[in-house]
Structure formats: structure tokens, C-alpha cells
């Protein structure tokens, strides 16, 4: 159940996407998002879909894992689709009582749902193909380039948060099971009963998170960690042909999305 959440997981591999410099991945991800939010017609979405599928294929991550990662978001996706479907005014193509679907609504709903799906897919692809350490280094360098203060600390915080998502999920499952062994019931009853049933889960979860944070801080200090100042690296990040190629292709993608928006 909770195991389906793939954000924050890393799947080892040797694909072209795995081997890209993390900075390249982060920057091209931002460019991709700009493109994704620019497109507004069928041609544009076709381009985005093609590009996204190509990237997934190139990463060697199986479509099954990607789909599994989308499962927890199913509700939001369906909600988005539904809201647009029924709430957009325009030319009516289907009506039942007060419910009506317009052609504009249909179009808008599908576009928005696709946008959400692609957004999550590509973002999880970043963490699926990048080790946490590479990701921190990448984020840090990008933040530094933007003159953001405490770039190292911010990057470290983000990575630790990402790194601990699977751990927290594991912990949640363990505590849930322990309370279920005492007869707890997490999935029946009304809204209030369900909210109440979360207390035996949340209290231990918070406590263990604090305990973990404490232990991690201690372990980092024991190894003389003291922030980013004067910190050097064993592995320097180096951009190669592959990365320039990735920038080129993403640039091209962005250009095409602009063309589809303003010229088609």
C-alpha cells in the first residue's frame, strides 16, 4: 500500500539518464517544466508526450514502476479531471440532469490531468535515476549559481528529507502493524473515527522522527560535519558531451513547445 510511493527512491542503473550530471538533470527538468506549462493545444501535448516517453525509455526504468508511483496521486488526478470536466462552460456535448460536459471542459480536463501526470513522472524520474549524494551536489551547485545563501545547508536538508521518505514509510507501516496487532482499525468508520484512529500512528511516528533526527545529527557531528564552509569533494562534478547533448535536446524541446503555442 504505502510501498507504492516511488518519490525519493533510487533505482541503480547505467542508462544515459543515470549518467547525466545531476546539474544537467535539474536544469533540464526546469526547462521541461516551463515547456510543459507553455503547451496549450493538441500538437503541443503530443510533443510533450513523445518527449516524456522517450526520456522514460532512455532511463531504462520500467513503465510499471512509473505507473505505480502515480497510483497514490490517482485521486488528485481524477479530481482535476472531474472539476474541469463539469465546471467549464462552453459548448455542451453531454448532459444528465444538472451535470453537463462541454467540449472545452473535456479538453481542459485531459490537458490538466496530463500535465499533472507528466510533472510527477519526470520529477520522480530525477530521483529514480540520481543517487542522493549526486542530487545534493547538483542542487547545491545550482543554488550557488543563483546566489542563494546557505546553498549547501539547503541542499543537505532537501536531500535528507528525500532520503528519509522511504524510511518514514517503512516506519509508518511498522507502527501501523504494531497497532493493528492490538486490534486497531485504520480503514473503517466515519471521517471522525478515522482521524481519531491516526493518533496511535502519528504520536509514535513523530517521536521516532525526532529520535532519528537526533541520531543523525549526532552521527554527522561525530564525523566532523559542520556545514558547507571549506568543504571539498572527493568526486568533482564534470559535464561532458552527453550533458551538452541533453541541454541541446531540451532546448529544442522548449523551442518546439513555444512554436506550438504561438504559431500552430
Amino acid at each position: 500500500m504505502l510501498k507504492d510511493i516511488t518519490i525519493g527512491q533510487y533505482i541503480p542503473g547505467n542508462s544515459a539518464i543515470h549518467q547525466l550530471d545531476p546539474r544537467t538533470k535539474i536544469i533540464t527538468l526546469v526547462l521541461y517544466m516551463v515547456g510543459l506549462f507553455l503547451v496549450n493545444n493538441v500538437t503541443g501535448y503530443a510533443v510533450v508526450t513523445g518527449f516524456t516517453l522517450a526520456v522514460i525509455l532512455l532511463s531504462g526504468i520500467s513503465l510499471k514502476i512509473i505507473l505505480k508511483g502515480l497510483k497514490p496521486l490517482l485521486f488528485i488526478i481524477v479530481l482535476t479531471l472531474g472539476l474541469h470536466l463539469f465546471m467549464t462552460s462552453g459548448e455542451i456535448i453531454w448532459q444528465w440532469g444538472f451535470l453537463k460536459i462541454t467540449s472545452q471542459g473535456l479538453r481542459q480536463g485531459i490537458f490538466m490531468a496530463l500535465r499533472l501526470i507528466f510533472l510527477v513522472t519526470i520529477t520522480s524520474l530525477l530521483t529514480l535515476t540520481t543517487t542522493p549524494i549526486a542530487l545534493t551536489d547538483g542542487i547545491e551547485k545550482v543554488l550557488k549559481a543563483l546566489f542563494i545563501p546557505a546553498a549547501h545547508e539547503l541542499a543537505m536538508m532537501m536531500t535528507i528529507a528525500l532520503r528519509f521518505i522511504p524510511t518514514l514509510i517503512e516506519e509508518t507501516e511498522k507502527i501501523m502493524k504494531a497497532q493493528m496487532a492490538r486490534g486497531a482499525d485504520f480503514d473503517t468508520g466515519g471521517l471522525l473515527a478515522r482521524a481519531k484512529s491516526l493518533i496511535p500512528l502519528l504520536v509514535p511516528l513523530f517521536l521516532s522522527s525526532f529520535r532519528r533526527a537526533d541520531e543523525l545529527a549526532m552521527a554527522m557531528e561525530a564525523r566532523c560535519y559542520r556545514g558547507g564552509e571549506n568543504r571539498t569533494r572527493l568526486k568533482q562534478l564534470l559535464m561532458g558531451t552527453r550533458d551538452y547533448f541533453a541541454f541541446g535536446i531540451t532546448g529544442l524541446f522548449l523551442a518546439i513547445t513555444i512554436v506550438t503555442r504561438y504559431m500552430v
Partner: peptide, 26 residues
């Protein structure tokens, strides 16, 4: 009855008696 490893990590109530009562209450 299953007692998990490190079962003290599942305690959540304000008092010992309330915590032990969780199972029978359920």
C-alpha cells in the same frame, strides 16, 4: 498476541494505563 521488536516505539498514550487499555478498548 504479537509483540513487535522494540515494542516501546508503539506507545502513544499519556498514561501507562491508557496505553495498555488500547487493545481491550479496540
Amino acid at each position: 498476541g504479537l509483540v513487535f521488536q522494540y515494542p516501546e516505539h508503539q506507545l502513544f498514550e499519556e498514561t501507562v494505563a491508557a496505553d495498555i487499555a488500547f487493545g481491550p478498548k479496540n
